[in-house]
Design a binder for these strands. Sequence first.
DNA 1: TATTGTTATACTCTATAACTATA
DNA 2: TATAGTTATAGAGTATAACAATA
Lengths: 150, 150
Amino acid sequence: MLSLNASLPMILNRALDGVMPAYRQLFAQYDLTEQQWRILRALWEVEDLRAAELAEQTLLPKPSLVGILDRLEARGLVERRRSNKDRRAVSIASTAKGRTLAKEVLPQAQAIHDFIRAVLPEEDWDALEHALNTLADRMKATTFAEIAAE
Amino acid sequence: MLSLNASLPMILNRALDGVMPAYRQLFAQYDLTEQQWRILRALWEVEDLRAAELAEQTLLPKPSLVGILDRLEARGLVERRRSNKDRRAVSIASTAKGRTLAKEVLPQAQAIHDFIRAVLPEEDWDALEHALNTLADRMKATTFAEIAAE
DNA sequence: TATTGTTATACTCTATAACTATA
DNA sequence: TATAGTTATAGAGTATAACAATA
């Protein structure tokens, strides 16, 4: 029987547990949680995103998104605008204040990233990325019911 | 500049996001959260563990552990016993009821695991495990301050 | 009717620091 | 004094379902 620490979730969690503290120390300096960071990070790359797109890119459930956006908006880092084309939709964008923050934080995040990249040789990263992405894609199309039915 | 969805945390999170729903559907049938599962899973492999060991193996912070154990104990799935050798220490073990649960759930968790393993060839798994464990080890010994100082 | 985003509810987990009892 | 576990506090995120406005 498989042991706990050889299970894929635990391997992934251990890796995250190794990597995230460095990031969290950085985020903490700017009073950001990991989820808030993901949202800002996504918004800094584009003009704006609709709530549904943002939820998908950040892997955050839609009802969670609302609260996290509320907090970011209250701090003036993002802003919500009702779309004119479809009055149901909301477009979310970084504010100027948010972009100022980006200029300060992104280089430091990049430094962490570079440090991490240097731990493994380039070809290991390619293999890692490919394997994990394959897994995620394959599993996204699979439910527990299908597995149990085998 | 690096994009969000190419960052290691996001790659790992996406993989978890692909893999966990299948497990969560299973856990939900037994009213278990992911964290509760980790604890039970660890306790099913051994006679007992001390709180500190359990926290380490499950990657759960000690104060979180207390509440999660409270809930598991209230359901009669685990039990806490004060150690006689060191009256400060607490040894935590699965109850008979917990072991009955194990017999029911573990084979289904194993089925998910087998399914996941079949997605990638054996050698990819070896590479993946090795790469991620190397990363976790290397990063655990690193603080943000060190990275920033480079 | 279907979709977008939001609200409501209830709960689990987290972070940090301080505390109790042992050692 | 140091350690093991717990408590206290305050908050963030999650899950699920239901809802209002709009399409």
